[in-house]
Design a protein around this nucleic acid. Structure first.
Lengths: 347, 347
DNA sequence: TTGTAGGCGTTATCAA
DNA sequence: TTGATAACGCCTACAA
């Protein structure tokens, strides 16, 4: 906390508080001579304006609340860093919260943010309908809310994510291209975006005259514990692999979590990647490259998503126009496919 | 930002502001009847006290500044999550900054935090001497500072990390135990903790009558770009591997960054892990398990480090005693070794 | 039990 | 060009 205040400086300098304040803020009302004296003195005393007082006066906290499923997930760190960078650029700071894919925890996170007096919220919702009424209310009356990443969410605001249908199609098409036609797709329960990715998957199959096999669509429950999640997934894969009539030869993981987890599981099951099972997944991190075999991924434009999210939110924060009048857009950015060893099949 | 204020509610309820305030704060001076009316009304209007005003009044912001080398590094996400959890527990919120291993960026980060009016700082310094004068000044006059993770840093305050000497010794001893005696150690330039880990490495060699080979001590410069860093490291390893008289058969990475990066490089060089080179590294994340081969690691007790850091800092924040009087301790927690495939050598 | 008044550190308005 | 004064929303003696 800063110690020296305007008042104290004013006293020592024999000026009024307002003069000192204006001098420091480079007001045109103040003479250059005075400005110089004040600024020099302020530097000497290492004056730091009290941001709380400032923001109280200005009616804003200059902080943005961010809610995403998990902070600890290594794959989220890049989006956090990007959001952080863009927020800093605009002199906003970030208060990050996590929902752990649970609506209740998400509710609390939202409450905490409101209690902190944030100026706006950027959220990747726990699931398609989580806290929708609450967020609607907040967006209408309290502060703007923006949806990112998990953009299948029924709130009338800016939404920033990728074209999930196309991404799913691309990933599947790539697997087909390297000769794999029996493709498992891993989906998250209640995660809207995986639905669209699944639709892309189905479209790719259709285009290539591949029959859709229901058993290949594997749903995973994010609310399970690590252990349950892994065991559940492991068993599902093991069962499929055992039945040679339908044994798959590729896996498409529709989220980063799903994809990394499945890699560990395949290693445990002693299944060779990519020879037995080619793998492609969603991931935003350089770590995909350090995996062995390096993981082929659908890469989301993290920086652009973060930049747009912050930009649109700040636009809404600074915009005094009634938010119900705004024509909100949905930004579906292009993802790119990054081929590495995990799909590098001997042809 | 919250909308309805005490004043407004007082007006509607025909009470004074202070009555309303006291009622909401459960003051004994207020009758139960009044309290009920006020609370009900506050809930109805969804009253949220303005935290800025509150904190201004109380002279504290209830927020903690955290500075670490990189937010985007997947390996830091767990420590961030842990810090976040413990801070939330105490009703503090976190403002996270990164230094990118650069003293200049660190300086800016510190300034930003001070401008935000944080109540204290938890920092893993960019390097052994970075911003030491500045932090000393802050710690003495402005707000308490605590060092974590990179605890080789000359500031008289609480420091929380692991026993790096022992950790280095353990990791090296494990490699020796599985029969590897020609062990490369990867160190960070100017990173104090890697020095101690190196000392542990040397001790382990000595105990096992293994000669120290200077070429095996490889320093990496964190300030390099990703690409330079990788190319540099790649070349150093390639050179060592080529000369069969000194070709190593194991690698010990003394930081998480170094370790993951080297995995990608080894894959590129088509060096088999663990058969040609066994690998052990520092890492705090479950992702080590998803690597193939799964990575053996020295695991730091992230949660404890975070808990202690937050606890000690809050102790200093709430403690009005002069900080120069305090007998600061250094907490060197035990790390644990987690063996996985990357050291599972055929014996 | 309730209300009045002052102040936390700023900024902004208006007067000098 | 400067200074006095009133906010911002909250808390808290102290007075009623």
């Amino acid at each position: 906390m800063s110690k020296v205040t305007l008042k104290e400086m004013a006293k020592v300098l024999n000026m009024s508080v307002s003069t000192v304040s204006k001098a420091l803020n480079d007001s045109h009302e103040i003479s250059d001579a005075t400005k110089e004296i004040v600024k020099k003195f302020a530097k000497e005393r290492n004056y730091q304006p009290n941001p709380l007082a400032k923001y109280l006066k200005l009616g804003r906290s200059n902080s943005i609340g961010v809610i995403l499923p998990s902070i600890g997930n290594p794959f989220h760190s890049q989006i956090i860093e990007s959001l952080h960078n863009y927020a800093s650029l605009h002199n906003f700071n970030l208060i990050i919260m996590q929902s752990k894919d649970s609506e209740e925890i998400e509710t609390k996170a939202i409450q905490t943010l409101l209690n902190q007096g944030i100026d706006g919220i950027i959220i990747s919702p726990a699931h398609e309908t989580s806290n929708i009424a609450l967020l609607k209310k907040i967006h209408e009356s309290t502060c703007p809310v923006i949806i990112f990443d998990r953009i299948n969410y029924d709130l009338d605001t800016y939404k920033i994510g990728v074209n999930n249908f196309q991404s799913g199609l691309d990933a599947t098409a790539e697997l087909i291209k390297v000769g794999r036609r029996r493709i498992i797709i891993l989906c998250g329960k209640n995660i809207g975006v995986t639905k669209e990715r699944l639709a892309g998957y189905e479209e790719a199959l259709k285009k290539n005259d591949i029959e859709l096999i229901q058993e290949y669509i594997v749903y995973c429950n994010y609310n399970n514990s690590f252990e349950d999640f892994d065991n559940d997934l492991k068993e599902k894969i093991a069962v499929l692999m055992k039945d040679s009539s339908i044994a798959p030869n590729a896996i498409f993981g529709t989220t980063d979590t799903l994809t990394t987890r499945v890699l560990g599981i395949l290693a445990d099951l002693k299944i060779q990647v990519p020879n037995e099972l080619a793998v492609i997944g969603f991931a935003n991190t350089e770590i995909a490259n350090s995996l062995n075999p390096a993981l082929s991924t659908i890469r989301q434009p993290t920086a652009e998503i973060a930049a747009l999210s912050v930009e649109m939110l700040i636009k809404l924060i600074t915009n005094k126009k009634n938010r119900s009048q705004i024509d909100f857009q949905e930004f579906k950015l292009d993802s790119s496919i990054q081929l590495r060893k995990s799909t590098d099949v001997d042809s």
